[in-house]
């Protein structure tokens, strides 16, 4: 089980959280988009082999959403950060070759 650092509550078990996939996907103006761009916004999320900035919600704790760097090969946990704040750099020691995939 992952141990996930909630920015508000500290280190907790993974079973207290729900997953929210890729972080930092801004909600666009639907009227400004082509059908293809809208389909991409709806359905395409990053699925890299390596470091991924992703969303989690601490539903069994503070109930708040936050973002987390996590490595999808090693399950290593990187820094957590709050939405709408400066994103920390990806930890780059492992899985570097595919982190932009």
């Amino acid at each position: 089980m992952l141990h996930i650092p909630c920015p508000h509550c500290g280190l907790r078990n993974e079973t207290e959280f729900h997953y929210g996939a890729e972080a930092g996907v801004a909600y666009p103006d639907p009227n400004a988009l082509t059908d293809i761009e809208w389909a991409k916004f709806l359905h395409i999320r990053a699925n890299p082999k390596g470091w991924l900035a992703e969303r989690w919600v601490h539903f069994a704790g503070c109930g708040r959403w936050f973002n987390l760097w996590r490595n999808t090969i090693t399950h290593e946990i990187g820094p957590a950060y709050l939405p709408f704040t400066q994103q920390p750099k990806a930890p780059d020691n492992i899985g570097k070759e595919d982190s932009k995939a």
């Binding site: 089980m1 993974e14 079973t15 992703e54």
Partner: peptide, 13 residues
């Protein structure tokens, strides 16, 4: 498991 992974292993829970 709830999250994206390429590790070919999952959580024991």
């Amino acid at each position: 498991d709830a999250f994206n992974s390429y590790a070919q292993r999952g959580g024991f829970h």
